[in-house]
Design a protein around this nucleic acid. Structure first.
Length: 502
RNA sequence: GCUCCGGUGGUGUAGCCAGGUCAAGCAUAGGAGGCUCUCACCCUCCCGACGCGGGUUCAAAUCCCGCCCGGAGCACCA
């Protein structure tokens, strides 16, 4: 029995205060305004894996309450579901906030009735001035009745966009000015900015602070795992929970992580660049989206292991792609079949052959159980026609002799720009080693198909791949020997592979 | 600027709460060599870190103070 190399998988540290709750409930709450990127896998895996670890519940909640500035797009709801499924995380419940507005209205009314929230029709500038000085605005003194009346008018489209908001009462001296009297509802003109799901049905929309905080309670979330950019929303939520007399869930915040090469690019910038044609789509190999990583052959388990390794510190971390690739290689290497791919092929004629040749090569050098592939070399008039990489052609010119892997050794006799001519030298590997010949791969000109590899910088390498590639299924990761790991992307007429890593 | 949060090799992480077994472990990257009919994998070795300065203590990466550096937030965004 051969043992697979088991990577040392770190286990998650225990979650705080688990025994205080009857069931652990976590959630992931994306805004469907773009596909998920690599960094978001962190909150997803941590939330999901903790829920599983404690036999709890993992909730997916779409937070689509800004049809204007962070406009949700219908296709991304599904794209996000697909991304999360690909990561291997199944959610137990799903909610869409835009379908819950009546619930938010109901709780807003309760808040007003409790005297904990008030309608505000101040000019934003004057309000800002007052509140940063720690002073209340005139609206704060309105009676409950007056507030309910104005609230109803807000619901009835009496006010236009920007004319009225609902504020939550806080401490006017709160250290963080943005926490003071924060906005729970604002008006968005959905006749101009329709929501992808509910259209122009509502104009009064809850802010993230309100809907997110409220839903965490209503959905019995016990443990919130999110980036530390949400640290200040916790302060806001605390007021909300205090007004309602609720207990706030355990909140864990992790620091942001930096990725090299455009990893920190913002959604809006990325979208703009895609529209401008700078990227091929949201799965362009240069982008750090999950869709792109998937397309390139990165295994979700590699991402998970990397996230578990990084943990949940609040300090920021700079990750390198190399690190992710190392995890991925560990997963992919034992399974990947080996094939020959000759890029920028150059024709090589080998003379002096006295018989037919065929090479039987393992699909995996250290796993004979994975089987063999065959490459037949047709010899006519003592001559064979092969392809080799142009880089290897240079090698042959420099060294004079090379071994064609698993075949025989040749000696260069003539070279022009597009054609190399060589003489059969000897057959054995031992002879090649004795003479210190470089080893190169090759393909018979009649045993290969055209292929191209899309590199991680989106450039494309043209070449030929051995026709044994018919055993490869779309989505499989294979290794092109002396080249790197690639994933078969499509084979409609043309074999297209995406480069994964070395 | 204000408010929070954080600083272990190039990168990530263990250790810090309960000081000694840490002249700091592991991984990855880098270097050298070995194995191998791939530049993959595997094996061996090397490289390299407790931000700085004080204090407490027999003893500090671990506790205390100051400084420095980095990050996050400061919206009618999520």
């Amino acid at each position: 029995m051969e043992k697979e190399v088991e990577p040392v998988v770190k286990t998650l540290p225990p979650l705080p205060n688990v025994d205080k709750y009857s069931k652990v409930v976590t959630r992931y709450a994306p805004n469907p305004d773009f596909v998920l990127h690599f960094g978001q896998a962190r909150a997803i895996y941590l939330s999901h894996d903790y829920a599983r670890m404690y036999n709890g519940i993992f909730i997916l909640r779409f937070e689509d309450t800004d049809p204007k500035n962070k406009k949700p797009v219908l296709e991304y709801y599904d794209a996000i579901r697909e991304d999360i499924e690909w990561l291997g995380c199944k959610w137990d419940k799903e909610y869409i906030q835009s379908l819950r507005l009546p619930i938010y209205y109901e709780y807003a009314r309760k808040l007003i009735e409790a005297g904990a929230a008030y309608t505000c029709t101040c000019n934003p500038e004057t309000f800002k001035k007052l509140v940063s000085a720690g002073k209340p605005c005139p609206c704060r003194g309105l009676t409950v009745e007056e507030n309910l009346e104005k609230w109803d008018k807000m619901l009835e489209h009496f006010y236009g966009e920007g004319e009225a908001v609902l504020r939550v009462k806080t401490d006017l001296q709160h250290k963080n000015v943005s926490v003071r009297e924060w906005v729970a509802f604002r008006i968005i003109d959905t006749s101009r900015e329709p929501h992808p799901i509910v259209g122009d049905k509502y104009i009064l929309w809850p802010t993230y602070h309100f809907a997110n905080g409220l839903d965490d309670h209503l959905m019995d979330v016990t443990h919130i795992i999110r980036g530390k950019e949400f640290l200040s929303t916790l302060d806001r939520h605390l007021y909300l929970y205090k007004h309602f007399g609720w207990k706030y869930p355990e909140a864990i915040h992790y620091g942001r992580w930096l990725l090299p090469r455009g990893g920190a690019m913002s959604k809006s910038k990325t979208l703009k660049a895609i529209k401008a044609g700078l990227f091929k789509g949201f799965d362009d190999p240069r982008l750090p989206t999950l869709a792109a990583l998937r397309r390139r052959g990165v295994q979700p388990e590699a991402i998970r292991q990397m996230i578990l390794e990084v943990g949940i510190k609040q300090s920021e971390v700079s990750l390198s792609w190399d690190n992710l690739y190392a995890y991925n290689r560990r997963i992919v290497e034992p399974k990947a079949k080996r094939l020959f791919f000759v890029h920028n092929p150059v024709k090589l004629l080998v003379y002096g052959l006295s018989k037919q040749y065929e090479a039987n090569i393992r699909f995996h050098p250290s796993k004979p159980e994975m089987g063999f592939r065959m490459l037949k070399v047709k010899v006519e008039n003592s001559t064979a026609s092969l392809f080799i990489c142009s880089e290897d052609a240079k090698l042959l010119k420099d060294r004079g002799m090379v071994r064609l892997m698993e075949l025989f050794n040749v000696k260069l006799v003539m070279s022009s720009e597009n054609l190399l001519e060589a003489m059969f030298h000897s057959e054995t590997y031992e002879e090649a080693r004795r003479l210190n010949m470089p080893l190169i791969h090759w393909l018979p000109v009649d045993q290969c198909v055209k292929a191209k590899v899309v590199m991680s910088d989106a450039t494309e390498l043209e070449g030929v791949v051995e026709n044994n590639c018919t055993i490869v299924k779309v989505g499989d990761v294979v290794q092109f020997e002396r080249f790197g790991f690639v994933k078969l992307d499509s084979k409609d007429g043309y074999w297209i592979f995406y480069y994964t890593h070395k």
